[in-house]
Amino acid sequence: MINYIEYGDIFALPDVHCYAHGCNCAGAMGKGIALQFRRKYPDMYLQYKKLCKDGAFKLGDIFEYRLNDEYVYNLGTQKDWKTKATLDALRISVWKMLESATKQNITAIAMPKIGAGLGGLVWEDVKYVLEAAALHFPDIDIIVVENYQQVNGI
């Protein structure tokens, strides 16, 4: 099931410890929510950057990162930071993420409007992809925060 939240911060949602976001495959996390992920998980960023440099993170791939009880799914949705995300890469990576989350007994994943910010995709198209995938994984709640808003001034 997908829950849409108009304004909020994915990192401030109660009882959610698993996150996802779209990434380029060039090793850059310098803007938008990717920069927040980079700051919150600096070791993840270093691993991601190395994967990209080695050519081991491509469109449609996922890079899973775990820190204690938190999971991050980095989804390969853009070739590089200069190009737009593709719906095919988004579709493939979302499916892989949900398959992996099922195996790990993850029941909730929070994400931004994945691929529709700096990724340049049309949000309605992305919603269709997410909703189609979610039908096959009814035990996982996907929480989409459509617009970032600081919580409690943090």
Rank of each mutant, 00 (worst) to 15 (best):
residue 1 M to A: 14
residue 2 I to P: 00
residue 9 D to H: 05
residue 10 I to S: 08
residue 14 P to L: 10
residue 14 P to T: 10
residue 21 H to Q: 13
residue 22 G to E: 05
residue 25 C to L: 07
residue 26 A to Q: 07
residue 26 A to V: 02
residue 27 G to P: 06
residue 28 A to M: 09
residue 29 M to P: 00
residue 37 F to V: 02
residue 39 R to Y: 09
residue 41 Y to E: 06
residue 41 Y to R: 04
residue 42 P to E: 06
residue 43 D to I: 14
residue 44 M to Q: 07
residue 47 Q to F: 09
residue 48 Y to Q: 06
residue 50 K to R: 15
residue 51 L to N: 13
residue 54 D to Y: 00
residue 61 D to I: 03
residue 64 E to A: 02
residue 66 R to S: 06
residue 68 N to C: 09
residue 70 E to R: 11
residue 72 V to E: 12
residue 72 V to D: 14
residue 73 Y to K: 06
residue 74 N to S: 13
residue 74 N to H: 12
residue 80 D to H: 04
residue 85 A to F: 04
residue 87 L to Q: 00
residue 87 L to G: 05
residue 91 R to C: 00
residue 91 R to L: 03
residue 94 V to K: 01
residue 96 K to S: 02
residue 96 K to Y: 07
residue 100 S to H: 13
residue 100 S to D: 15
residue 101 A to K: 01
residue 102 T to S: 13
residue 102 T to F: 09
residue 103 K to C: 03
residue 103 K to N: 14
residue 103 K to M: 08
residue 103 K to Y: 03
residue 107 T to I: 11
residue 107 T to V: 10
residue 107 T to P: 01
residue 108 A to G: 01
residue 111 M to E: 06
residue 112 P to I: 08
residue 113 K to S: 15
residue 117 G to E: 10
residue 119 G to D: 10
residue 121 L to T: 07
residue 122 V to A: 10
residue 126 V to F: 11
residue 129 V to Y: 06
residue 130 L to W: 02
residue 130 L to H: 07
residue 131 E to Q: 14
residue 133 A to E: 08
residue 141 D to C: 05
residue 143 I to W: 12
residue 145 V to Q: 10
residue 145 V to I: 14
residue 148 Y to V: 09
residue 148 Y to S: 03
residue 149 Q to I: 01
residue 149 Q to C: 11
residue 150 Q to I: 05
residue 151 V to S: 06
residue 154 I to M: 05
residue 154 I to V: 10
